[in-house]
Simulated assay, not measured.
Amino acid sequence: MDSAANKQTVTRFNIEVIQQGRREAFEALMAPDFVNWSAPPQARGAEGMWNTFENVLRPALSDLKVVIHEQLCEGDKVTTRKSITGVHSGSLMGIEPTGRAVSIDAIDIVRVTDGQYREHWGVNNLAAVVGALRIPPSPDRSGT
């Protein structure tokens, strides 16, 4: 596949799987031998990734959206800089809903072959977002 097709595969995953929670898209886009190198060893397969989106992020964030800021492709690897946004309306890693807007920034590298995810490496600021949600908001002192 060419660079444009590989980028489209990654875009489709971000919109249809992460944002929309479509299991059939997930199954179509994941290679049987997929490895998520950013996950703990026991969760490196495809189901570990599905669990993160379907059982951690989606229940915690209403109005979840994925915004792709930039994509670069070299060979079979697509690098994506993105934000996952939403409103903290459900429990997130033990933190009860705050009603606050959140933005999780991430950079992913995905190896795509034959239109499927084969490998994933990524970094994100989820730990910082969770830490910020633990801090009570300061009162509005603007008078408005």
Rank of each mutant, 00 (worst) to 15 (best):
F26W: 12
I15K: 11
P59K: 06
W37N: 14
S62T: 14
A106R: 00
D108G: 00
V10I: 09
I107Y: 00
S38N: 11
V130R: 10
I95F: 04
V56R: 10
K7T: 05
H69A: 00
C73D: 03
I18R: 07
T113V: 12
K7C: 02
I68P: 03
T85I: 11
Q42P: 15
D108L: 03
D63T: 13
S62L: 02
V129L: 05
E24A: 08
Q116Y: 00
V78K: 04
A43T: 15
V67E: 07
I135N: 12
A101I: 12
H120D: 02
V66L: 09
E24L: 13
P97M: 08
E16I: 14
Q19W: 07
G94C: 13
V17E: 03
E24T: 15
Q116N: 02
M93D: 12
S38Q: 14
A106N: 00
G115S: 01
V129M: 05
H69M: 00
P59M: 07
V129G: 03
V130A: 12
P59R: 02
F53Y: 12
K7R: 06
P40E: 15
Q71C: 05
G45P: 11
A28M: 00
F26K: 08
D76Y: 07
E24R: 12
I84Q: 09
D105P: 01
Q20R: 15
L133H: 01
